[in-house]
């Protein structure tokens, strides 16, 4: 079941990328070492792994929030987004002093779009994520799920082909998490985006991704790769799904031991 995704228009390419963090006391910690990874256009890739194996580091490097200590990172710039890569975090995804509408407009406002156009586009994006009625609410007035919906709308506003997400649904309850997963799948297939998604939740990775990259170790690196060829919409209770689930769980718990 190997597919060579490197050949179809890669959007993200990491070659031998390493990143070292220095703590305040001067101790050096290698977060990731010699990471090679490719994400093809239109692909939904989940990076799965236990906490502290460098998953977030990879995302920060791809999004340009951090620079690698060695190796090279290529991210194909897409139209419209001015090279900015929208990033959905787990926490602090919205500015608390802005209304939902103003939050969704933030990126467009920064790029100099007119107020009217910002508003129009923000409203249509909010409708798309089912938040049209909460446009004038402040983030603290929303539930966790609604906040992440707004955060998705905020990042979609940049018209980027690539979206990176770091455990975006990590602090939601299971029911809301599943709902958000469905919403994200819909958006992804509708807009034909490329999504790089970090999670430590096996179920979430299997439900959403075309390909799951399992990260392991200290320093972290991709250990195994799974192409998930279960047709969508996926059924958590199908034998194919549960078999993969068990396999991934075994691999992940080996790591812990």
């Amino acid at each position: 079941m190997e597919k060579n995704s490197d050949m179809i228009e890669p959007v993200v390419v990491l070659r031998d990328v390493s990143k070292i963090f220095r703590s305040e006391s001067g101790v050096e910690v290698k977060a990731i070492e010699a990471v090679n990874m490719t994400v093809a256009a239109g692909e939904f890739v989940a990076i799965l792994g236990p906490t502290g194996c460098g998953k977030t580091t990879v995302l920060n490097l791809v999004a340009g929030l951090d620079a690698p200590d060695s190796g090279s990172i290529m991210v194909r710039k897409t139209n419209g987004s001015n090279g900015v890569i929208p990033y959905v975090f787990q926490h602090y995804t919205l500015f608390p002093w802005r209304t939902v509408l103003a939050n969704v407009s933030f990126g467009m406002q920064m790029s100099g779009m007119s107020k009217r156009d910002c508003k129009k586009k923000a409203f249509s994006l909010l409708d798309q994520v089912g938040l049209g009625a909460s446009a004038n609410a402040y983030p603290h007035e929303l539930s966790g799920g609604m906040r992440q919906r707004a955060a998705i709308a905020q990042s979609l506003a940049l018209d980027s082909q690539l979206l990176v997400m770091d455990e975006p649904f990590g602090s939601l309850d299971d029911h809301t998490r599943h709902e958000m997963g469905e919403l994200l799948s819909e958006i992804w297939s509708h807009l034909q985006m490329t999504i790089l998604f970090v999670t430590h939740n096996i179920d979430e990775a299997l439900m959403l991704a075309d390909r799951v990259i399992l990260f392991k170790g200290h320093p972290g690196k991709p250990e195994e790769e799974f192409y998930i060829e279960i047709p969508r919409p996926r059924d958590r209770l199908s034998t194919q799904f549960t078999a993969l689930h068990v396999e991934l769980r075994k691999l992940m718990s080996n790591e812990c031991a």
Partner: peptide, 24 residues
């Protein structure tokens, strides 16, 4: 976190000051 968010949404230094530092 808010500075990172502003950066990933394309804010320049001046815009970050005006739209993040100041309101925060």
């Amino acid at each position: 976190n808010y500075l990172m968010l502003a950066k990933t949404l394309g804010a320049s230094r001046r815009q970050t000051f005006l739209h993040v530092y100041l309101p925060a």
